[in-house]
C-alpha cells in the first residue's frame, strides 16, 4: 500500500495505518538516533514519533492525486 493511502487512512483516525507508517520509518528513526546520547535516546525517539503523528495528521493531501 502506498504511503499516501496510509496517510489518508491515518487522517481518518485509522490507528493501524498510523502504526504502519511509523513502522515503515523505523529504520530511518534508528539511523537518526545513532549519533545521539544513549541517555536521552528514548526521549528523542518519543518526540520524533510524536511529531510524526502530528505531521501525518496535518499533512495536506489536497494537491496530490
Amino acid at each position: 500500500m502506498s504511503l499516501l493511502t496510509l496517510v489518508k487512512r491515518a487522517q481518518n483516525n485509522d490507528e493501524s495505518a498510523m502504526v504502519e507508517i511509523i513502522e515503515r520509518f523505523e529504520p530511518k528513526i534508528r539511523k537518526s538516533l545513532k549519533f545521539t546520547d544513549i541517555g536521552v535516546r528514548e526521549d528523542i525517539r518519543q518526540e520524533i514519533v510524536f511529531r510524526m503523528i502530528r505531521a501525518v495528521k496535518t499533512y495536506s493531501t489536497k494537491n496530490c492525486l
Binding site: 496517510v7 537518526s32 545521539t36 520524533i48
Partner: peptide
Amino acid sequence: QLIKYISSLIRFTAIELA
C-alpha cells in the same frame, strides 16, 4: 515528496533535540 518530508522531519527532530 511525502517520504522526503517525513524523513527530514525525523532527521531534523533528532538533530534539534540532540
